[in-house]
Design a protein around this nucleic acid. Sequence first.
DNA 1: TATGAATGAGAGTTCATTCAT
DNA 2: GATGAATGAACTCTCATTCAT
Lengths: 200, 200, 200, 200
Amino acid sequence: MRSDQRTERTFTERARRAQILDAAVDVLAERGYNGASLSAIAERIGVSKGVISYHFAGKDELLREVVSSVLADSRDYMGPRVESATSYAAALHAYVQSNLEFLDQNRHRIVALIEVVNGTPPDRPAPYGPGHRNAVRSLTGMLERGQQSGEFGKFDPHFVAVALRAAIDACSELLRDDPEADVKAYGAQVLEIFERGVRP
Amino acid sequence: MRSDQRTERTFTERARRAQILDAAVDVLAERGYNGASLSAIAERIGVSKGVISYHFAGKDELLREVVSSVLADSRDYMGPRVESATSYAAALHAYVQSNLEFLDQNRHRIVALIEVVNGTPPDRPAPYGPGHRNAVRSLTGMLERGQQSGEFGKFDPHFVAVALRAAIDACSELLRDDPEADVKAYGAQVLEIFERGVRP
Amino acid sequence: MRSDQRTERTFTERARRAQILDAAVDVLAERGYNGASLSAIAERIGVSKGVISYHFAGKDELLREVVSSVLADSRDYMGPRVESATSYAAALHAYVQSNLEFLDQNRHRIVALIEVVNGTPPDRPAPYGPGHRNAVRSLTGMLERGQQSGEFGKFDPHFVAVALRAAIDACSELLRDDPEADVKAYGAQVLEIFERGVRP
Amino acid sequence: MRSDQRTERTFTERARRAQILDAAVDVLAERGYNGASLSAIAERIGVSKGVISYHFAGKDELLREVVSSVLADSRDYMGPRVESATSYAAALHAYVQSNLEFLDQNRHRIVALIEVVNGTPPDRPAPYGPGHRNAVRSLTGMLERGQQSGEFGKFDPHFVAVALRAAIDACSELLRDDPEADVKAYGAQVLEIFERGVRP
DNA sequence: TATGAATGAGAGTTCATTCAT
DNA sequence: GATGAATGAACTCTCATTCAT
C-alpha cells in the first residue's frame, strides 16, 4: 500500500502508525525481540494482525522505524547541546550528560531499541542505517580534535570512544536492575572518570 | 530423565553433553540466537534432534549450560590471578587483564554467551543464575575494599564497577566489528583510564 | 448494489466497468491467475480496491465478465464469417481462419481468458457459462451437417471437433513460447490437416 | 531434513512420500491448483500439515515431484513402444496410441499434472524440467525424420507436432466432461486424421 | 542410547471483503 | 461514487517437543 513513498500520509494513518510504533516499543521492552510478534503487538492495541501489515510493509519496516525514530530523537536532543559547547571538554561533558538525560527520559524506547539491534539475526540487514557504529565514530572524531587542540592528552581515541559509549549504554542495565537508579549521578561519575582519563 | 541431578553421568554421556554444548556454541556464534535451532545444532554433530532432547531437559537447559560453562571457566581463569595480587591496584590490574585475556582466548564462546543472554525473552528464567550481576557485585566489593584501604580515592564503587564491566564487555563489539582488533592494547587503554579514575 | 441486473447503468459506470475489465485482463495476462489480486488490478488504474467491489459484486463476477466479454467478441467476430460461407468446407475454413485471426488480434485477452478458465478452482461456478463446451458443440454440429450433406466423409464428429478445437487453442501456447510465431501459417497448416481429415 | 540428497530413504519414508504424493494428486485433480493447499492434502491422509513439511522441502518440491513422477512414468510407458516401431508411420501410431493408453490409465494423475503446469504462476520456476516443450520437440524430430525418409509428405513439422500434442492432450477435457468417454476410439480418430495429414 | 516420525502451535504474509465517511 | 481502514481467514513454513521402535 505504501508503495509510493512520496505520498503524504493521512492524519488517521499517521496516528495509527504512531500507535503501532508505540505498541511495538512497549512489547519489545516487555517481552524482548522474540516476544514481539505481530500478534502480540496487534493485541496490545486491540486490533487484528492485518492492521500492521496494512500500515507497514512488513515486520522489518516496523522494527526499522522503531530504531530510526529513537535514533532521530536522540540526535535531535543531543546535537544542539553538544554543538553549542565552546571547548572540547565542554563538548564531552555535554555529550555524556545529554545522552544520559535522553536515556533517562526514554527508558522504554531505549530498551526496545537495544532489543531490536541485539535481536536482529546476523544474516539480515542491520536495522540501523549507520547506527551505533556511527555514534562511536563521531565520538572518536570529537576526541581526536580535542587531542589536536591540545585540550586532551595522549590516548587511543577509538578505544576510549568504545569504552565511553559502553559505559554510557550500561545505563540501561543499571535501570533494568534498579528502575529507581540515579541516572544523573551515574552520569556524573562516568564523566569524572573519563574527564580525568582524557586530561593531558 | 536427566532431571535427577544427583545421578552420576557416565563417561559417554558427559562426552555427548560436551559435544552438544560445543556445537551449540558454534551455531550460536555463527547464526545467532534465532538461528540456533535444535536441528541446526544436531545437524552440526550429525545426530538427530532427539539426541539433544535426550541429554538435556529442553532447549532452555542447554542454553543455560552454555552460559554457565563459559562463566565457570572465566571464574576459573580469573579467580587465581586476581586473588594472588598483593595490592588492590594490582588486583584491579589483574582483573581487567585476565578478563580480557579470557575474552580474547574464548571469542567464540563469548559471542555465544552474549547471544543467549541477549536473545532469551525476559519472561523466561534468565540463563545466567546470578551471572553478570554477580560480576558487578564482586567488582564493586573489590573497589570498596580498595577505598577502605586508602589505595583508591573517593567515587561511587557500584557505578564505577558498572562502567568498568561495560568497558570490558565492549571488547566483544570491538571484535565483532574488527576481528583483528588488538584486544591487549584495548585492555591497556581501559586500564589506564580506570586506574587514573580510581586514584585518590 | 449491482445485484439488480435490470438497472440501467449510467455512462460513467459503464466506463469504469470497462476500465476495470481492461486492467483485469492486463494483470491476468502478465501475472497469471494467482497474481491477479484485486489490489494489483486496482493499482493498475490507480484507484482503491473498494472501487472494484463497488462496481462488481465480487471477484468472481469480475472474472466471469472478463471471460464472457472475450467470448462474446469472438462470437461477434467469427459468427458472420462462418455463417456467410456457402459450403460446409468453406464454413470449416472460415471457422478456423477467423478463429485464429481473432486469437491473433486479441492475444492479451486470450491469455487472460485462459488464466481464468484454468485457474478457477473446480468447486466454484465455472466462469464460462456454457463457454468452451458450447464451442465444441457448435463445431460438432457443423461437422455433422457437413456429413449429412455428403460434403464430409465418415468420422466421429464430436471427437474431431474436440481435436480441432484443441489444435486451434494450442495457438496460445505457440504464442506463449514464441511471441513472433506465425499464427497465419499455423492456421493454414491446421486447416490442411483437418480438411484432409474430413474429406470423404 | 532431506538436505543430504544422496541419503537413501527409509522404507517408511518412501511410503509416506508416496502416500503424500498420491494425496496431492487426488486433491489437485479434485480441487485444482488453488484448492491444493498443504492442509487439504494433509487432511486427506489424516495427518498434520507438518508431516508434509517434514518429508518435502516445501510445497514447490512436492508439486515438482508430482509432475516429474507422472512424466517419468509416461516416458517409461511410451518410450519402448515408440522405439520398437520399424517405420515412422508405425512410430507415430505407437506414439499416439501409447500416449492415450497412458492417459487413460492415469486420468487422475494427468489432471493433477495439468493443474500444476497451468497453475504455477509465471514468475516461478516451471515445475517440469524440460517437460511439455520437450514433448513437442521430440515429436517434431520424429516427424522430420519421417519426412527425410520419404515416408511422410510435406508439412511444417513443428506446427503439426503442436497440433497433434494438443489433440492428444484434449483427451483430458474429453474425460473431464464425460468420465466414461471412449479414449481408445478418440485415439483412433485422432490417429486417422493425422495419419492422413502427414501422408505424402 | 539414538533415530525417524509426527505433532501442534505460532510465525509473517496475503487477500477478498466490508463499511463509515 | 470513491476512499482508506480494518477484518479475519487462509496460506506456507519453522520449530521444540514427544514417542514408539
